[in-house]
């Protein structure tokens, strides 16, 4: 279940930042992970998992681990 969730989130994030995988990627070091990508990521996670993420939480997403942890917290 956990692995599947991580795979799904990786699929979402990597498609938005246009990389093969988001494993090991940090927002501050990724040119394609800009503010528009951040907005798209939040909307995509909300659409995939039927969530309403708070803005504070959404802005703290810097890695795949952050995304998995946040989605797990809301689910």
């Amino acid at each position: 279940m956990e692995a599947s969730l991580r795979d799904d989130i990786d699929a979402i994030l990597s498609s938005i930042i246009k990389l093969e995988t988001a494993e090991g990627v940090h927002r501050s070091q990724c040119a394609t992970w800009d503010s528009m990508a951040q907005v798209a990521l939040v909307s995509a996670l909300e659409g995939e998992f039927d969530l309403a993420l708070s803005l504070d939480d959404a802005m703290q997403l810097n890695t795949l681990d952050d995304c998995v942890e946040l989605v797990n917290r809301y689910l």
Binding site: S43, G47, A52, S54
Partner: peptide, 19 residues
């Protein structure tokens, strides 16, 4: 309609309602 998102980013439709 998603007010927090609209105020901060200009995105008016919540991700969970986009479909």
């Amino acid at each position: 309609f998603e007010l927090p998102s609209y105020l901060n980013t200009g995105v008016a439709i919540a991700g969970r309602s986009a479909d």
